[in-house]
């Protein structure tokens, strides 16, 4: 059974239909890259999976449980599916360690000492063990994004959604974040990432989804999608991103 089942999902903003019937099944341990031009609906799809956007029709289920809009069901879903954002979105008034501890304590009611212990481990895991007491604005973009990953991991999700997590980073900081993601993939974490890092997608992902005008235009293993693009749209897209 697939871990995340997306079936005929439609979503409009006003009269603009952004998702026009999306079907994707994601198995446990898969690493999915969603690529496509801006405005193709890839970020919206990701945001729908953890309920930041509500879908107009169709269904999304995670571990067999339907995604509902009711607040409590939504919170339970979000415990299973973590999300990393382009802009990091660390809590600026809390230290890195506190950022990782907060939701454990507030949502899971983990005792403070235990939460701190987990936070230390998670920060260690992303290579920032010594930054426990640093505030977000004392960290580089790459470090902030790694703290954000540690924060999501601390909730022990079964899948992580990554929304262009390296797009706001200076080029020299991209690698350190991707290294962490690569490690997660190797450990068997289910990952769904919207990305512009084509080389990373090719090296790490099990499948690549090319979205075009609100539809899944092509889907397949990276070697097929990247070396034998079937549609002119994907050929053009890949040509553009290789030229860039």
């Amino acid at each position: 059974m697939s871990l995340i089942a997306i079936t005929d999902v439609r979503k409009s903003f006003g009269s603009n239909e952004v998702l026009k019937g999306i079907d994707i099944d994601i198995a446990r341990g898969e690493v999915i890259a969603i690529i496509g031009k801006s405005g193709s609906g890839k970020s919206t799809l990701l945001r729908c999976i953890n309920g930041l956007e509500t879908i107009d029709s169709g269904s999304i289920s995670v571990e067999g449980a339907q995604l509902l809009t009711e607040a409590r069901a939504l919170r339970e879903l979000r415990l299973k599916v973590g999300m990393i954002f382009q802009q990091f979105n660390l809590f600026p008034h809390l230290t890195a360690g506190r950022n990782v501890m907060l939701s454990q304590m507030v949502v899971k009611k983990t005792p403070k000492d235990e939460a701190a212990e987990i936070a230390r481990n998670m920060l260690q895991r992303v290579g920032l063990g010594e930054k426990f007491d640093a505030y977000p604005d004392q960290l580089s973009g790459g470090q902030q994004q790694r703290v954000a990953i540690a924060r999501a991991l601390a909730m022990q999700p079964i899948a992580l959604l990554c929304d262009e997590i390296t797009s706001a980073l200076d080029p020299e900081l991209v690698a350190e974040v991707l290294a962490v993601v690569k490690e997660l993939a190797a450990e068997g974490m289910t990952l769904v990432m919207v990305t512009h890092e084509m080389r990373f997608a090719r090296d790490v992902c099990s499948r690549v989804v090319f979205m075009h005008q609100g539809r899944v235009h092509e889907i397949g293993p990276p070697e097929d999608v990247f070396t034998n693009p079937r549609t002119p749209e994907l050929q053009q897209f890949l040509g553009m991103s290789q030229a860039a």
């Binding site: 930041l52 607040a71 339970e76 979000r78 415990l79 999300m83 954002f85 809590f91 939701s103 954000a148």
Partner: peptide, 9 residues
């Protein structure tokens, strides 16, 4: 969004 994605009410 970040706090919601961490399951906070």
């Amino acid at each position: 969004e970040a706090s919601a994605s961490l399951g906070m009410g």
